[in-house]
Write a protein that binds this DNA or RNA. Sequence first.
DNA 1: AGTTATATTGCATACGTATGCAATTTGACT
DNA 2: AGTCAAATTGCATACGTATGCAATATAACT
Lengths: 343, 343
Amino acid sequence: MGIEKVTSIDVAKRAGVSQSAVSRVFTPGASVSSKMAEKVLKAADELGYRPNVLARSLITGRSRIIGLVVAYLENQFYPDALEKLSNALQQHGYHILVFMVSNDDDMVDQVMGELLDYQVDGIITASVAMSNELAARCAAAGVPVVLFNRGQDDPRLNQVTSDNYNGGYQIAEFLVSGGHQRIAHIAGWAGSSTGRDREAGFRAGLKDLGRELVACIDGMYRRETAADAARELFRGPDRPDAVFVGNDHMAFAVMDVLRSELTLDVPGDVSVVGYDDVPLASWPAYDLTTLRQPSNRMVEATVSILLEWIEHGANDVQKIKIDGPLMIRGSARVPQGWSHERL
Amino acid sequence: MGIEKVTSIDVAKRAGVSQSAVSRVFTPGASVSSKMAEKVLKAADELGYRPNVLARSLITGRSRIIGLVVAYLENQFYPDALEKLSNALQQHGYHILVFMVSNDDDMVDQVMGELLDYQVDGIITASVAMSNELAARCAAAGVPVVLFNRGQDDPRLNQVTSDNYNGGYQIAEFLVSGGHQRIAHIAGWAGSSTGRDREAGFRAGLKDLGRELVACIDGMYRRETAADAARELFRGPDRPDAVFVGNDHMAFAVMDVLRSELTLDVPGDVSVVGYDDVPLASWPAYDLTTLRQPSNRMVEATVSILLEWIEHGANDVQKIKIDGPLMIRGSARVPQGWSHERL
DNA sequence: AGTTATATTGCATACGTATGCAATTTGACT
DNA sequence: AGTCAAATTGCATACGTATGCAATATAACT
């Protein structure tokens, strides 16, 4: 088991130069002659030397690690975002350290502590809220935080979301224009800003058109809870003829219950609209009409804010809302005059 | 911007003890009196001190970071595994550093280099192969590697897979017993051991029953490729009456094409069987008969091998195959006498 | 060639922690 | 109270790298 650790000192010896010289060769932008670079790189190559990122971070104060806190990956929106975030950060020489949490405060607090122990350069939280105390700790430690797909009032926290209120509003217009009479809502988790904003926008939209919800149940962003909600909403004879479900993940569960258990036709008997536009939404089995959260642009914004803070010492907190289009597909009756845009 | 870094020295000063004492209080198993522990913890708490994991790792040679290399998260099997892996490792005080790669060798090599730069304690690759040269480098660096859901001959690499050969074999028995006459296969990527093994087992099973494949196309584990394969296989009048698709992710695409484009009935006209049993497979929209890869047990095995190597210096390479049951659902005709086990 | 500005290099030190060793304290026992 | 073993503590150093500073080499002039 020849566990060989090659250090910059080994390389220096072999190349007949000082350790600092080696360090400089591997530090972009440092002052080295081409002859020196050549010598050192040759020696490094022969020994298989690579700089130790951890040792480096000890002295630079930069770990090139971004902590990602995420509650669950069952909803396809998050693995998709994770993949994109990781790719984008990787291109800038950063990598993602993953922390899974259940969404209760204790767990988040504990995990966030561990996160700071790793001297992460920045933190992204996806679908997770932070206590104010925690936000303070991150701020004190000089670690920028971006809430991805979640909003929070704390003035120290950057955030990137879609325009959830407006999205909900659009969906209300869409459903009302479609001539639906009994409109219900299976809401996103009331403990999340996204869930609350979508519901508020939806209600506002209905109200402005002189309508109101016939029923509203919190689906907790969970498949089973949403399915139960659907069973309750649609068992009676005076069932809704349209339902806006707080995200796609729940909407699939609702459609499953409607079609398989209650043998209702979608959209013949009930129109269903979701939120997110995860890949599965466009597959024919669901063909779900849904409001797209533009994950590409959300990821871009997240990464750019983070790098701005880390590398250029920015300190203006950004609260970004990104608009997304309604993807009109086959799960909801299409009003006259609304173009049927297909993906 | 008071970026305050509290070090063990600060704590030592405040508690009126030596830095070593502070270190020992935060090192499980070190020799400290209860009085000392109390003093130090009090001071640490007042200052908000937490040990710097990176500095610690510099001296212990342990980073408590596990590198995870993964090609894509679109197939639900992988986010699911990632979530479980992360949770399991987190319980042991490890965390996952994510590296996304495209599945060509150059990229893998480059990324693996970065991985080693972080002094990871171990590496898990999911759905990714490694060059032998790379395996050698990891071995030389003393970093254990576990291939998750992928096999490779290299004697230095641990691996955990399901019993793909046997799985393919079982599916052959199932389809033949179901009375299917024209059996086709849309295979997993031929560049992967899983794809090859499943196909080999499937062919062997057919052969032992005196049958053979009427057609076989490589679906590359990609949705679009699989869909194209389905279009090609099923356009003629003498189309197959059963198809085993190399994983669920592709099977969904195949069912979409069969039902929506070709208006064929599943399983009336065609039986479809997948592989993995991702959550979506059990949802009514697909209700896919599929061979379960027991991700729980695969994750357990992966974590236990890794910890055995890291913490107890194990060095016996393990190649583990875990058996999974065929989940009989509604997408394939059920032979007489096969119990219809439901999830 | 002589002067001065600039680029390159080495030396020494720092980052925050863990740990072997020797010094000290504690406790148990006669 | 005195002896001795065991537990606890502090001292000093090491981990692998980056960087300010002074020393040296090089280049660019007159």
